[in-house]
């Protein structure tokens, strides 16, 4: 089992014919993902990577039964692409695009909420369920390893680092989800934690947050109310100064909110062990999942 994505998921790619779209669609196919269609307005009726291309998401859905949409379109058109996917009735939209105007995302978020569509991202690496041979997004294929650790993170490369470090110590993932580095996101840490709580394949969750916003604090509240599985925390940006946007549009300490200290403290109050380094994440996971014999 896994969350959000499994071997039955049928994926369409919006912006598949672009260079990023082409490269990553091929990677997804190589990983084993069932990619069934591409959508590029104006290119309907053609083929790309051996797959049919449609002008609209609605056409692609009705012709192929796709239930997941991956968005690889440029920032000015990305929020519209998310809404188009939602309107066409897909269950899950995964938006990789970064630099989307924030007011565009406010509208897209409102619409998908009304329709009950799930959104991962934007400005995210997507997600991967290695045991299900399914990936949507740009997580490097070689980092996928079947296992029982659920990973949820705001950063792309940091997610890969954690997957790789855990993988080298023998710990694979049920599902790894990069929720994105923007201020307006689809699924939050809490949303993903709730999904992991109900997933039979997930024994432990690694949650990698960063400065900015209050999503980590909310997740800590959720865990504090009683969470059925161990959670290992990690917060990056501990040394970041206030008021500076650290790359991710969402990673900024403003006023009294968003500091790493507040997040670490909130997690520790919820009795989450917070690791200082990626190496320490591995140590904590090892301790939690392989308790010393005789205990």
């Amino acid at each position: 089992m896994s969350i959000l994505l499994n071997r039955g998921s049928r994926v369409l790619v919006q912006g598949m014919t672009g260079s990023e779209g082409t490269f990553h669609t091929q990677q997804m196919i190589d990983f084993g993902t069932k990619v069934v269609a591409g959508v590029s307005p104006g290119k309907g009726g053609t083929e790309h990577l051996g797959l049919p291309v449609y002008d609209t998401v609605a056409e692609a859905v009705s012709a192929t039964g796709a239930d997941v949409a991956a968005v690889f379109v440029p920032p000015p058109f990305a929020a519209d692409a998310i809404m188009e996917g939602s309107a066409a009735g897909v269950r899950l939209v995964v938006c990789i695009t970064e630099m989307i105007p924030v007011n565009d995302m406010v509208r897209a978020k409102a619409m998908i909420q009304r329709r009950g569509t799930l959104l991962v991202g934007p400005n995210c690496p997507g997600l991967m369920s290695p045991g299900e041979r399914a990936k949507v997004g740009i997580i490097p294929n070689q980092n996928g390893k079947e296992g029982s650790v659920g990973i949820v993170s705001r950063s792309g490369t940091l997610t890969y680092e954690i997957m790789q470090a855990l993988g080298r110590s023998g710990f694979g993932q049920s599902t790894a989800v990069g929720i994105g580095g923007d201020p307006i996101l689809g699924l939050s840490f809490s949303d993903v934690l709730e999904l992991f709580a109900a997933d039979g394949a997930t024994e432990l969750v690694v949650m990698a947050g960063e400065i900015g916003g209050a999503d980590e604090e909310r997740a800590a509240e959720l865990i504090g109310r009683g969470y059925p599985k161990p959670v290992v925390g990690f917060i990056s940006g501990r040394t970041a100064p206030p008021g500076k946007r650290m790359g991710h549009a969402g990673a900024i300490i403003s006023g009294n909110t968003g500091s790493a200290k507040s997040k670490v403290e909130a997690l520790e109050r919820a009795r989450v062990e917070v690791a200082d380094t990626i190496e320490q994440i591995v140590e904590v996971v090892a301790r939690q999942l392989r308790p010393p014999s005789g205990s």
Binding site: L158, E161, G181, E210, S236, R238, A240, G247, A251, D276
Partner: peptide
């Protein structure tokens, strides 16, 4: 990657 760079800063400081 922004997260990775933030973490790198943290490591330097540590």
């Amino acid at each position: 990657g922004a997260g990775l760079v933030m973490n790198t800063l943290d490591l330097v400081k540590q």
